[in-house]
């Protein structure tokens, strides 16, 4: 877990770029549906789900995808389950942080009738 945390700290530029990407997606959906009404609510949900799904899933590909070769080399002398669990735990605050940034911006398209 220590190693995964150090890796995450060193890759803080990726974290910032993830924040910017999420915010950009949030702003984009906000611009498309400003003060969304009930008739457009399903379209807003559709775009929001697509934006969320694409940005988060592409960002999460990096977690294990970038380390495939290193893992193949070191798999014989590390505990695979410990490696997997630690990577999962360390990723949680990054995802939560990126989502906070996204939703603070996304709420600009607040529901006018609420």
């Amino acid at each position: 877990m220590m190693r995964a945390a150090i890796q995450q700290l060193r890759a803080y530029k990726y974290f910032i770029s993830d924040l910017m990407l999420e915010s950009f997606a949030g702003v984009l959906v906000g611009i498309l549906f400003p003060h969304v009404v009930l008739a457009d609510f399903n379209k807003w949900l559709c775009f929001m789900a697509m934006g969320l799904g694409l940005t988060i899933s592409i960002a999460s590909l990096r977690v294990f995808g970038n380390e495939r070769v290193v893992f193949w080399r070191e798999a014989s002398f590390i505990d695979v389950s410990a490696y997997f669990i630690s990577k999962n735990i360390v990723e949680i605050p990054r995802i939560a942080g990126a989502l906070i940034a996204r939703y603070i911006v996304l709420l600009n398209c607040s529901l006018s009738r609420a």
Partner: peptide, 11 residues
């Protein structure tokens, strides 16, 4: 859930 799918396919 989505990140779980991302982990799965990236591995």
């Amino acid at each position: 859930a989505i990140s779980g799918f991302g982990y799965f396919v990236s591995i």
